[in-house]
């Protein structure tokens, strides 16, 4: 013990403790990303990007040897789906034209939504099982800011930026227990709060609370409500899987299947700016 005291061991322990306290204070007093995290993230960002690129290269090679029959079956199913979507598109064009004529009749202005998008690759996934987060390879240098929504290529919401360095950002996904978003059921217009849940996170699900009525059906789409103007409206969060009652037996909530593939996505799109005209 004496040797430990005289050989600088206690000094080393004090330095480590001081660094840990500094981390805590910086995180508590600064609403953004603390300087230590930002600096460390900036140093490790190229390493993460390099290792993620190597991983994608290996995966792409392995994918080429995937079962041919499976690909053929998927191709046939997709061709059928395309045919159905083309039919739906033709109907939608007819409906859109009718909508335009009716708006003119009623004197309504056209609602428009514009997004500024920044494409980013996923360089790391959450190291902790108690949270759901992704690290992307774009940061404040590309206009990314805390609070920006992140979506996948199909327009489904993946999460929200909660930390941003110069060349990296951390996205808390919709599955994270701390995640809360204003949501709306597309079919009924009912509003609620879509939030992560620790139990549901391991099942790759999230919950929808504060439902006014009980008219939800399995398969109902849930989108962001955009109330408050913090997040754009109309981003697809997921679809209803089932309705459950909480442990107290009082409140009913819906279990949602997220539309974005949180574990599989390698490229996401950060909404750095948006405008909605009504």
């Amino acid at each position: 013990m004496k040797r430990f005291l005289t050989r600088g061991g206690v000094i080393f322990l004090c330095v480590s403790t001081a660094a840990a306290v500094l981390l805590c204070v910086a995180a508590a007093t600064d609403s953004g990303t603390d300087p230590v995290h930002s600096a460390f993230g900036g140093i490790t960002a190229p390493l993460r990007a390099g290792s993620a690129a190597a991983g994608r290269w290996v995966e792409s090679i392995a994918a080429r040897f995937a079962a041919v029959e499976e690909l053929q079956a998927r191709n046939e199913a997709l061709e059928q789906k395309v045919a159905e979507l083309e039919e739906a598109l033709r109907q939608a064009q007819t409906d859109s034209e009718e909508n335009r004529r009716l708006r003119e009749l009623l004197g309504l202005r056209r609602r428009r939504r514009d997004f500024s998008l920044e494409a980013a690759f996923v360089t790391a996934r959450s190291g902790s099982n108690w949270a759901s987060a992704l690290t992307l390879d774009k940061g404040t240098a590309c206009g990314v800011a805390i609070g920006n929504c992140v979506m996948d290529s199909r327009g489904a919401l993946a999460g929200v930026v909660t930390e941003a360095g110069e060349t990296w950002c951390t996205v808390t996904t919709v599955l994270d227990p701390s995640s809360e978003l204003g949501a709306k059921v597309f079919r009924t217009g009912e509003t609620g709060i879509a939030s992560g849940n620790l139990r549901l996170m391991t099942e790759n699900r999230l919950s929808l609370h504060f439902l006014e009525g009980g008219a939800l059906k399995s398969g109902d789409l849930v989108i962001t409500s955009g109330l408050g103007g913090y997040y754009p409206a109309g981003l697809l969060i997921g679809s209803v899987e089932e309705l459950r009652t909480d442990d107290g037996g009082v409140e009913q909530y819906a279990v949602l299947i997220p539309r974005a593939d949180i574990d599989g996505e390698t490229e996401l799109f950060i909404i750095t700016a948006f405008s909605v005209e009504k």
């Binding site: 981390l23 805590c24 995180a27 230590v36 995290h37 490790t44 902790s128 108690w130 949270a131």
Partner: peptide, 10 residues
């Protein structure tokens, strides 16, 4: 804590 932040900073 720096590489893969947990629930709290430290």
């Amino acid at each position: 804590d720096l590489w893969m932040p947990g629930l709290i900073p430290c």
